[in-house]
């Protein structure tokens, strides 16, 4: 193998790379199509497991008493959004909004818990992230997520290294962009849909649990 490649056209050199890229691309598309429903189902189950804690239902509450309804809401521009309503004994406990947006490395997917009046954030959960290990991925930790709990939905949350005002949260050291991204995803989603949530009827639709 000592012949030096002559620049006799890219195709004769690169046909294998191009062919492989096409074959691999096709194979990946196939695998993705096949597995996506299972991935979505895993995320759905995880969402349902997290909802009670996100809206502040006490752990001692019997699972059978908790009813979770999945609903579709629309913001003022007509954009649709899936939302979960958690009820105990027919009384609304709070909303959980799935949200997503760009982080530092890749998309971050969140679940945001809100009180029934959509005025306070009651919980935050990270469904998916690929932030830097050891720095940005600390957004998954309870310690960071709890910084959002109790914040008012009327204020724009900002991640600051030295939080002073009530709308500011402490940034993660070494992960400023990840922290800001999470705050921004929360802000955008909450601001867009809180009006629609307040208009939404919180009485249970039919009493049949959507499990």
């Amino acid at each position: 193998m000592s012949e030096t490649p002559e620049p006799r056209g890219y195709l004769s050199q690169a046909w294998l790379v191009i062919l492989l890229a096409l074959v691999y691309g096709g194979a990946l598309a196939g695998v993705q199509t096949k597995l996506q429903p299972m991935i979505d189902e895993n995320k759905r189950l995880e969402t349902y497991r997290q909802i009670p804690a996100l809206v502040g239902i006490a752990e001692s509450t019997d699972d059978a008493e908790i009813i979770i309804e999945q609903r579709q809401i629309e913001d003022d521009d007509g954009r649709k959004q899936k939302v979960y309503l958690a009820l105990v004994d027919g009384k609304p406990q709070g909303w959980v909004l799935p949200a997503g947006g760009m982080g530092f490395a890749d998309r971050i997917e969140l679940l945001i818990g809100l009180d029934p009046a959509a005025e306070t954030i009651t919980g935050l959960w990270v469904l998916d992230q690929k932030e830097t290990p050891g720095l940005g991925d600390l957004i998954r930790d309870e310690e960071f997520r709890s910084r959002f709990v109790g914040k008012s939905t009327g204020e724009h949350i900002e991640a600051k290294p030295e939080p002073k005002r009530s709308n500011e949260i402490l940034t993660l050291t070494g992960a400023t962009i990840s922290s800001r991204s999470v705050a921004e995803i929360v802000n955008q989603t909450v601001e867009r849909f809180k009006g629609a949530l307040r208009r939404e009827d919180t009485t249970p639709t039919s009493g049949k649990p959507d499990r």
Binding site: V17, L20, A21, Y24, A27, L28, V31, Q32, L35, Q36, M38, I39, E41, N42, L45
Partner: peptide, 19 residues
């Protein structure tokens, strides 16, 4: 690299899909 990246993506999807 192309070959490895393809199989890594498949492995990643499988890990996410199997409950």
């Amino acid at each position: 690299t192309l070959t490895i990246a393809t199989f890594v993506t498949i492995a990643d999807l499988i890990l996410k899909a199997v409950p």
